[in-house]
Design a protein around this nucleic acid. Structure first.
Length: 271
DNA sequence: AGTGCGGCCTGTCCGC
DNA sequence: TGCGGACAGGCCGCAC
């Protein structure tokens, strides 16, 4: 899916078009996403005003005068602004028609995404309540990572992809950050020195910031609010580069599966 | 409590 | 050219 840089790129791209807008109509063509789209969503949202668009982890929070619309893009979801009346394409599941002549449209071929609704504080929603710190905030650093890694036997890649430990890091950026930090993705989290965990926290921040600057990574589905791809794919150092030379030492990049996810690393640079 | 796995979906690509 | 199977950016819920 979109990982944090892609979700944040989406948020930045559509924020100005949705903030302050009244929702004129909601159309749900396919309610069967990861969870069923709430049946009365249209009634709940109609005539509500979108006050702001925030992000927590990979969840987008449309805060309105009557509650919060929570959107998750899953593996293949994208949100974009289209002009009212633009004919929906395949997998365009949900539309929010706004007062400014634009429609916010959710496309999600694999339907692993979600559209949810809550009247209370969205940060207390069951799906969001236990989330770890934002990786680009001061709440995420080497000390935090060290505390969470203590005693863990599982692979460090699994640890940093755990949203209770830190949000926003998916399969691509986990491999990339571990490469920058020089840590083998399969290494047990609890057996990494404090110094290297500090380096890993810094590497996570670095790779996410770089990806944000490039508008995210587009492998296949991701487009920003204007329908454009991100450009970080060309900057990936190890992800998807099995057999190609390590950008650091030239050794062939290796791939192996960890927790059922493809992982890429340099066997010489990452220990 | 931590860990590993199945499952949710469709599209694409690869080998036969 | 067609077909089966593996795989793809996430992550919940369950069994152990």
């Amino acid at each position: 899916m979109p990982e944090l840089p892609e979700v944040e790129t989406t948020r930045r791209g559509i924020e100005a078009h949705v903030s302050g807008q009244i929702i004129a109509a909601v159309e749900v063509r396919q309610p069967k996403l990861r969870w069923r789209v709430p049946p009365g969503l249209s009634r709940k949202l109609k005539d509500a005003r979108i006050d702001c668009l925030e992000r927590r982890g990979k969840y987008l929070l449309f805060k309105t005068s009557s509650g919060t619309l929570i959107v998750h893009l899953g593996m293949s979801g994208s949100l974009r602004m289209v002009v009212d009346g633009a004919p929906p394409q395949a997998h365009d599941h949900v539309d929010l028609r706004l007062g400014n002549g634009l429609t916010l449209r959710l496309r999600d071929p694999r339907r692993f995404g979600a559209v949810l609704w809550t009247r209370s504080d969205p940060l207390r929603h069951p799906l969001l309540a236990a989330l770890g710190p934002e990786p680009l905030s001061d709440g995420f650093d080497g000390a935090w990572l060290r505390q969470r890694a203590h005693g863990r036997k599982a692979a460090v890649k699994t640890l940093i992809m755990n949203s209770r430990v830190v949000v926003g890091i998916g399969n691509i950026y986990a491999s990339e950050a571990l490469f920058l930090a020089g840590i083998n993705p399969a290494r047990s989290a609890g057996r990494i020195s404090a110094r290297r965990l500090h380096g890993l926290a810094a590497a996570v921040k670095q790779v996410l910031e770089e990806a944000l600057e490039q508008g995210g990574t587009t492998l296949r589905d991701f487009v920003n609010g204007a329908g454009e791809p991100g450009y970080f794919a060309q900057s990936l150092r190890v992800y998807g580069r099995e057999g190609e030379p390590c950008v650091n030492c030239g050794a062939p990049v290796r791939a192996r599966v960890l927790a059922q996810r493809a992982s890429y690393y340099c066997p010489r640079c990452q220990r």
